[in-house]
Design a protein around this nucleic acid. Structure first.
Length: 880
RNA sequence: GCGGACGUGGUGGAACCGGUAGACACACGGGACUUAAAAUCCCGAGGCUUAACCGCCGUGCGGGUUCGAGUCCCGCCGUCCGCACCA
């Protein structure tokens, strides 16, 4: 009887309905009851509800689902929730374009995407679903904000901010990429605005130190965060200003340096154009005034800053060298000195810093080498156009001469700590961080309102807790650019909660990264009346496996690490936990070839993959249009994106091949952390494998021993071999899923299927029993990856239970070790032969057998072996 | 410029702690089944040499350590990513 093809799309709907009925996609109430085992919290980064799932989501959520289902089968009590990162710009843009409300658009998208996720068969706990745009969620976020405010971890200040002129909003430093807004791509400008900030710098040291404890995070992400936090160890040094050269009231200049060892190489001082000393000096100097203005204008865009030539202006002020009262240096205003790092002032050592050197050459200032690189000759060493900023031996540095760089640092630091200027130490050790406080104000409607009321008398007053949530008004207008909350006729008019006088609401909303900084904690009990249910969070946190894109290496992950600490320290601690994500995995992107033609202006016009037909293969492979047969160029393989039209819609794939096929393909071939290339051949191969498994199991079901039959007492060699292959694969597949090496697990399942298919045509003692054993183990191993197919196969094998409810099978340790082993035989390190021998053979026996081989004798060519190395069960190397 | 990762057949990739390089899959070639095709099944395949065996070469390039190196060390080359006036 010919086997019917497995109709994946149809059967998948069936099994999804069965699961729904069985309520199997539940992790149970708050502390979980489904499994008695230890808890395991599996989380994938929740999606922005853009309207449709893309292949990147499919890959991300498939990995999480395989891991979650596997852990469940291993007896863990698993939490695997899903929600929506639902605030943000696109909803507002959609509102403008379609004349709908952002909420309407967002919730319609959520419905559509939820249906898509369900059609992929993910074992998600939908009872815990949350959307950050719901007042049920953001009311708690407002409470968290108020608690941070009370602790001084949220505050308001006027600051230069990154202004995105397209999105018309403020961006955090982390959200500016190559001088452009991370979402809009517009050139970012600098503007002075009063904004709300979170004091992430308060945790700079801790966030950096704790990276060392995150041993289940990728090294790469930890390094990126460490660089971002940017700790430097240095010295604050106070330089006195020479009498008569400095403006009234300016007696000293404080600089920050990480290289006090180079102090004798100092050649000038430089301050930022908005440094108080620069401003004071400019008052009486119109030319300097003009120069400062120029610097400020230049600084309007980050891109300009990066390309600007180094320029300076001599203020005429002179600073006294802290180690030599007779030595004075000129003070410049320089465009490359930043006011918001260190003290906004530096001393410059041109021989040891490229910027200082460029500046010194331009203005003809002295360049004195003070550090001799290791191996360089003292007499001939000189600095020409390249500064030397490495370590070495001190020269031209008086009492430091001969010391190494580190010793010189210490010597200068301790001298200056003891030295006094106006009764206070000249030098003070200081650790500086690159990290800045997180500006969270956004001039947008579709975000969490900041619960503050501004009163002319009382200032910025927190909204009383009883008045939370501060809800967004439904009737906002989106017809103009700018903030709809700002121009709403009534919403912002409220009375001051303290004095009762008319006041106005804060119209800024929070950066959406705040929303995603604590959602993982909310998932542990999303219906709690407080932001975080302490018991539920204590049970479930930390997240045991977090999975998402590398693009969040800094932004989301650093903010979450900070926010979790900040809320812990302001009344919402979860045990003593400081880190929310115990293990992190960053998956690669889904890529696809691109196809294009050039238009009349030489611009590329992109083609969807299904508009392209191919002719030939290998080097002769050509693309043509599907209708006209006109030539098309084949472009790079890049991340799927709408703009390049190289996207494949998951819905189309599910409808054609089924969800299991899409899932299987996303797990195959490429290591999960690397990019995977979507190809038609690849998805077709996955589809073939599904049919193959179905045929194999169908065939096996006919040949297998009945369910529950006792194991036979003897096994034929064929049966024995199949059992060994099966149990080895079981052992390996488990390990590889555990280690998220899905591509390797997939290969092992292919391999076992090949062996199984060969064994099905054989007969022998115990084979029928072994066929059942292997068939069941294959199905159970496939279950986390292709859950629908696995259920179908499980039923075909005679069960009316669900395979997704079965415990993970146990590999028989006795079948993992072989009686005989094949070892390679080398002569002088070159492989000459192989030897099959009892695993229990002694080294002497192996050696004798190896020397006995013709091939070994031939290779030795009459020489006596000098030495024989035997590595048990692996290799024999004859040296002769 | 600084920091990091990576480099294996025609392709994606595998190889535990230094121990048979190329598992598995794609593409390709040959065969079976078929009137034919699709589907399926079987076989082949790193390169050079050879009728075949044998042999030689082979994990970006050059050196080194080792009985033995894709794996460790040093120096190059290339690709990708992150950061970038941070004093």
């Amino acid at each position: 009887m010919a086997t019917e093809r497995y109709n994946a799309p149809q059967r998948e709907k069936h099994w999804q309905a069965v699961w729904e009925t069985a309520r199997k996609n539940q992790s149970g109430p708050d502390t979980g009851t489904e499994n008695q085992g230890p808890k395991c919290y599996v989380l994938e980064m929740f999606p922005y509800p853009s309207g449709r799932i893309h292949m990147g989501h499919v890959r991300n959520y498939t990995m999480g689902d395989v891991f979650a289902r596997y852990k469940k089968a291993r007896g863990f009590n698993v939490l695997h929730p899903m929600g929506w990162d639902a605030f943000g710009m696109p909803a507002e843009n959609a509102a403008i374009e379609r004349n709908t409300h952002p909420g309407t658009w967002t919730y319609a998208n959520i419905d559509a995407m939820k249906a898509q996720l369900k059609s992929l068969g993910f074992a998600l706990d939908w009872d815990r679903e949350l959307a950050t745009c719901s007042p049920d969620y953001y009311r708690h976020q407002q409470k968290l904000f108020l608690d941070l405010l009370e602790k001084g971890l949220a505050y308001r200040k006027s600051a230069k901010v990154n202004w995105d002129p397209v999105d018309m909003t403020v961006l955090a430093n982390e959200q500016v990429i190559d001088g452009r807004g991370w979402r809009s791509g517009a050139l970012v400008e600098q503007r002075e605005l009063t904004q709300w900030f979170f004091k992430i710098t308060h945790y700079a040291e801790e966030l950096l130190e704790a990276l060392a404890t995150l041993d289940k995070w990728p090294e790469k992400v930890r390094l990126m965060q460490a660089n971002w936090i940017g700790r430097s160890d240095g010295l604050l040094v106070r330089w006195s200003l020479q009498n008569g050269t400095a403006p009234e009231g300016h007696k000293e200049l404080q600089v920050y340096t990480t290289r006090p060892d180079t102090l004798f190489g100092a050649s000038f001082m430089a301050v930022a154009s908005d440094h108080p000393l620069a401003k004071a000096a400019a008052e009486k100097n119109p030319q300097l005034q003009a120069f400062c203005e120029e610097c400020r204008r230049l600084g309007t865009s980050v891109a300009d800053l990066e390309t600007a030539e180094k320029k300076g202006f001599d203020t005429g002020i002179r600073a006294v060298h802290p180690l030599d009262a007779d030595w004075t240096l000129p003070v410049y205003v320089a465009n490359f000195v930043l006011m918001d790092y260190g003290t906004g002032a530096i001393f410059a050592c041109p021989s040891g810093d490229q910027r200082d050197l460029d500046f010194a050459r331009k203005y003809d200032l002295p360049v004195v080498p003070v550090i001799l690189p290791p191996g360089a000759d003292k007499d001939s060493f000189e600095i020409t156009n390249e500064a030397y900023d490495g370590d070495g031996t001190m020269i031209n540095s008086r009492f430091l001469d001969g010391l190494d760089t580190n010793a010189a640092f210490e010597e200068v630091a301790s001298r200056l700590e003891k030295a006094k200027l106006d009764g206070k130490p000249v030098g003070e050790r200081k650790v500086n961080f690159r990290l800045r406080d997180w500006g969270i104000s956004r001039q947008r409607y579709w975000g969490c309102p900041i619960p503050i009321i501004h009163c002319e008398t009382c200032g910025a007053m927190p909204v009383p807790e009883k008045d939370l949530p501060v809800k967004l008004p439904e009737d906002a207008s989106f017809d103009k650019p700018g903030n709809p909350l700002e121009r709403h006729p009534t919403w912002k008019n409220v009375d001051c909660p303290k004095c009762g006088k008319p006041a106005r609401r804060e119209t800024d909303t929070m950066d959406t990264f705040v929303d995603s900084s604590w959602y993982y904690a909310r998932f542990t009990n999303p219906k709690a009346g407080v932001p975080i249910d302490k018991d539920a969070a204590a049970y479930w946190l930390p997240v045991d496996q977090y999975i998402g894109g590398i693009e969040h290496a800094i932004l989301h992950l650093l903010y979450s690490r900070f926010f979790f600490r900040a809320i812990s320290d302001s009344g919402h601690p979860v045990k003593n936990l400081r880190e929310p994500f115990a293990a992190l995995f960053t998956q690669g992107m889904v890529t696809h070839e691109t196809y294009f033609q050039h238009d009349a202006e030489k611009k590329r016009v992109w083609f969807e993959p299904d508009k392209v037909r191919f002719e030939g293969d290998g080097k002769d492979r050509k693309a043509v249009t599907i209708d006209g047969g006109q030539p098309i160029e084949i472009g790079d393989i890049v991340k799927m994106s709408k703009s390049k039209k190289n996207v494949v819609d998951p819905d189309d794939i599910i409808a054609h091949y089924g969800a299991d096929c899409a899932r299987w393909f996303m797990l195959s071939d490429s290591p999960p952390e690397r990019d995977v290339q979507w190809t038609d051949e690849g998805i077709a191969a996955a589809g073939r494998f599904i049919q193959r498994i179905w045929r194999l199991i169908d065939d096996a079901a006919d040949k297998a021993a009945p369910v529950g039959e006792k194991p036979p007492s003897t096994f034929s060699p064929e049966a024995e071999a199949l059992r060994r292959a099966t149990h080895k694969a079981l052992d390996q597949v488990g390990r590889n899923i555990e280690g998220l090496r899905f591509n390797v697990a997939v290969a092992q399942l292919y391999e076992l299927s090949n062996a199984f298919s060969g064994a099905l045509s054989k007969s022998g003692d115990g084979l029928a029993w072994t066929i059942r054993e292997t068939a069941e183990i294959i199905v159970q191993m496939l279950a986390p990856m292709m859950p629908h197919l696995a259920e179908e196969c499980w039923a075909r094998l005679g069960y009316n239970t669900l395979v997704s409810k079965q415990p993970w099978p146990c590999a028989d340790p006795g079948l993992l070790v072989d009686d005989t082993v094949t070892v390679a035989v080398q002569v002088n390190g070159k492989r000459r032969d192989e030897l099959t021998i009892a695993a229990s053979a002694s080294n002497e026996e192996v050696e004798a057998a190896a020397l006995n081989l013709d091939s070994v004798q031939r290779a030795l060519d009459g020489r006596k072996p000098k030495k024989v190395i035997v590595v048990p069960k692996r290799i024999v190397n004859v040296v002769g």
